[in-house]
Simulated assay, not measured.
Amino acid sequence: MKIIASRERCKGHGQCELFAPDYFEIDDQALVVVVKDDVAPADVAAVEDAVSHCPEVALRLQRV
């Protein structure tokens, strides 16, 4: 799985970083940064939680 993030939609709520801190950060502009975009099998549930809790729907997962 690969993470796709829209910085244009992001409002910096930080839910992604809360649910999957190994994969997301909120930068000094209060926008999402994907730290690692290839999701390890053991982390899929955490990243799916992060994606589903984004209030701006700025994140999605793509199967590769």
Rank of each mutant, 00 (worst) to 15 (best):
M1P: 05
K2C: 12
I3Y: 02
I4W: 00
A5Y: 00
A5I: 01
R7T: 06
R9I: 09
C10G: 04
G12Q: 01
G12A: 05
H13S: 06
G14Y: 00
G14T: 05
G14E: 02
Q15I: 07
Q15S: 11
Q15P: 10
Q15N: 13
C16W: 01
C16D: 00
C16M: 10
C16T: 08
E17G: 08
E17L: 10
E17W: 12
E17C: 10
L18F: 14
L18H: 13
L18K: 09
F19A: 05
F19N: 04
P21G: 08
Y23F: 13
F24K: 05
F24I: 06
E25R: 15
E25K: 14
E25D: 10
D27V: 11
D27R: 10
D27Y: 10
D28W: 10
Q29W: 12
L31T: 08
V32F: 00
V33I: 07
V33F: 08
V33H: 02
K36E: 04
D37G: 06
D38H: 11
D38L: 14
D38N: 14
D38K: 15
V39K: 02
V39E: 00
V39Q: 02
A40C: 13
P41K: 00
A42N: 15
A42E: 15
A42L: 14
D43S: 14
V44C: 12
V44H: 13
A45D: 15
A45R: 09
A46T: 11
V47T: 07
E48I: 15
E48R: 02
D49P: 10
A50N: 03
A50Y: 04
A50D: 06
V51L: 07
V51N: 01
V51W: 03
S52D: 15
H53P: 00
C54G: 05
C54F: 03
P55N: 04
P55V: 01
P55Q: 00
E56A: 09
E56H: 09
V57H: 11
V57L: 11
V57R: 09
A58E: 00
A58H: 04
L59Y: 02
L59D: 01
L61W: 04
Q62D: 11
Q62S: 12
Q62C: 09
R63N: 07
V64M: 07
